[in-house]
């Protein structure tokens, strides 16, 4: 062959996925209306929970070890971090498979999973720059929210939330791949969102649940998305507990990524490029 090939280097590899991140960022910029609606939706959610918990705390000062201020902080910070870790790679993947556009990714020298992750990170980046700040400002003005337990806790909270992004992406990617088996998976995606909201502890702290349920959810990746980072923020984890939580998150990052790769291997055999 006359042609010269160019070897991959790590840095070039990184740049490649960085580009996918950038594109996703720009895509988000294009949807200004849904951006505004998104900000308002988040604030409504936090408000609803605020009034709900306020009513709940009418009779007792603390419930299951949380006082009202902690609870409000839990909810607000929960939604603020959700505004960061959320992404739509599952939906995008489904649409790509349905339309057959996935072919256009497969003809390029890219790792499909890393590409999807990069897209997810691009969306997160967009949010941290433009979406999360207004939510932080409005919610802190409206509700009594405490700061992080300590600077150390703040640091680990940020690290932990970043790991949430990866775990969330790992789950989203794997679920999105199911569209290769079932052409319509909107039902699955809907229940996935409900399950993540519940089992991640976003709606109700997981230690409010019966013991058996807590034990059950401790074995699942979802609690690592919201419950663990929030416990760190509130200062409910220290020392070895903190190290354990972060290590557990790391473990889930790796496991969800590996499962994603495995499912992709199986899917590849099934994938039918629609159209043409």
């Amino acid at each position: 062959m006359s042609t010269r090939r160019f070897p991959d280097s790590v840095i070039d590899g990184f740049i490649k996925y960085n580009e996918y991140m950038r594109i996703s960022f720009h895509k988000m910029l294009a949807y200004r209306v849904s951006y505004l609606i998104g900000v308002i939706t988040y604030i409504i959610h936090v408000s609803v929970y605020y009034f709900l918990y306020k009513a709940l705390y009418h009779q007792s000062h603390t419930i299951n070890g949380y006082d009202l201020q902690q609870m409000v902080t839990y909810v607000a910070i929960g939604w603020i971090s959700k505004s960061f870790y959320l992404n739509y790679i599952d939906r995008e993947l489904t649409e790509e498979v349905k339309s057959g556009h996935v072919a256009m990714d497969l003809i390029k020298p890219i790792d499909f999973q890393l590409m999807c992750f990069a897209r997810g990170l691009g969306q997160s980046l967009f949010r941290i720059v433009l979406f999360t700040p207004p939510i932080i400002i409005v919610t802190t003005c409206m509700f009594p929210i405490s700061g992080p337990a300590s600077p150390v806790h703040m640091f680990f909270f940020i690290l932990s939330t970043f790991l949430s992004v990866l775990i969330y992406s790992g789950i989203n990617y794997t679920i999105g791949l199911l569209s290769i088996f079932f052409l319509s998976i909107s039902g699955i995606l809907y229940s996935k969102n409900m399950i993540i909201e519940l089992l991640s502890g976003l709606l109700i702290p997981l230690d409010w649940f019966p013991l058996w349920f807590q034990k059950f959810s401790a074995f699942l990746p979802f609690q690592a998305i919201a419950f663990l980072p929030l416990k760190i923020y509130l200062g409910r984890l220290d020392g070895s507990g903190l190290v354990y939580a972060i290590s557990l998150q790391f473990l889930w990052v790796i496991i969800t990524m590996l499962i994603g790769r495995l499912v992709w291997k199986i899917c590849q055999r099934q994938i039918l490029i629609q159209g043409g």
Binding site: R5, A103, L106, I107, P109
Partner: peptide, 15 residues
């Protein structure tokens, strides 16, 4: 696939 895609060009008129 990964290696292979570097050696080919593809155009699908429909997309």
């Amino acid at each position: 696939r990964y290696e292979y895609t570097k050696q080919i060009g593809v155009v699908f008129g429909q997309r």
